Simulated assay, not measured.
Amino acid sequence: MQLIKDKEFGGERPLFASHDVHLDNVTILAGESAIKECSNIVATNCRFEGNYPFWHVHGFTIQDCYFAVGGRSALWYSDHLTMKNTVIDAPKMFREMNDIEIENVEMNDADEVFWRCDRIRIRNLRLHGGTYPFMFSSNIRVDGLESDSKYVFQYAKNVEIHHAKITTKDAFWEVENVTIYDSELNGEYLGWHSKNLRLVNCHITGEQPLCYAHDLILENCTFDAACDRAFEYSTLEADICGTITNVKNPMSGHIVADSIGSVTIDENIKAPADCIIEERKK
């Protein structure tokens, strides 16, 4: 593998079609497509300032690096990436990619990141700001996520999440086959129109959670007092610890909680309208 060390590159496509290269302490200055149509690339201790540095790259490692704001849309149409110990201040990262491994990464403008990606493994990721992370992505496993981005995991499929703290709005809409363990989910309108969403040992806050959900499962979950009008038009099996403030018009299934503040069943409930709602027997 060729070593390129302590260098600076700018302009358009300075390392185009490079293969089997280790970049160490390299700075990519203003310009476009610095490392395009490449393979077997290792970047360590590098700084990326120009646009679109990694497009159509096959097999690469990025470790202990920094992407400045100018390095936007840096990773598109590529595969087999491992990224570790990296800070990203640029938006619109990770698009149309597959086979991604992320560990100890911080993204400070998570606008439109991880779109239409497949096979993502994440350990310790922080997302700040921006909208729609993970839109249309699939086959994702996360262990350790902290995010305040809006509208996370819309239209995502086959997702498993552990130890997350997600503060957002309209999260997990239209998702399919998603399981979330041991996490805190804060924000309005959680999980609407989802299919096969399962929450285990999770704490939920925000208004009108989990409506229009199909085959929803909750195991040992807790709800903040602000969670009113929950489960409207949903089919579900829910085991809730503590109190839930209000349940409104669930379609079918079974809801059991230690305490239920109120239940709203009105003329707008949808068939089969046979959900069993009960407080746990003491």
Rank of each mutant, 00 (worst) to 15 (best):
M135P: 01
N201H: 15
R119T: 12
E146Y: 10
A225K: 12
T205W: 09
V142G: 05
T168G: 02
H214Y: 13
M107A: 07
W115S: 01
P91V: 08
C202D: 10
D215V: 07
I166W: 01
K195C: 06
G144A: 12
H128Q: 14
N196I: 04
L218H: 07
E146T: 15
K92E: 14
I100F: 06
H193G: 02
A164W: 01
Y212K: 14
G206Q: 03
L216T: 09
F172Q: 00
A171C: 07
N139K: 15
L210D: 00
L218K: 07
E103T: 13
D170M: 02
I122K: 02
F134K: 01
H128R: 15
L127C: 10
M97W: 04
W173G: 02
R121L: 13
R95M: 10
H193V: 06
R198T: 15
N104L: 09
V152T: 11
E188W: 02
L81I: 14
L197I: 07
D143W: 09
K84W: 05
R95A: 06
A110D: 03
E219I: 12
K157Y: 07
E101Y: 15
N104F: 08
G130Y: 05
P91Y: 04
L127A: 04
T179Q: 09
F94M: 12
F153Q: 04
C211M: 12
T82E: 11
F153C: 08
C202T: 12
G187N: 03
L81N: 04
Q208V: 09
V142L: 15
I120P: 00
A225F: 07
I88W: 00
R123C: 09
E112L: 14
T167W: 03
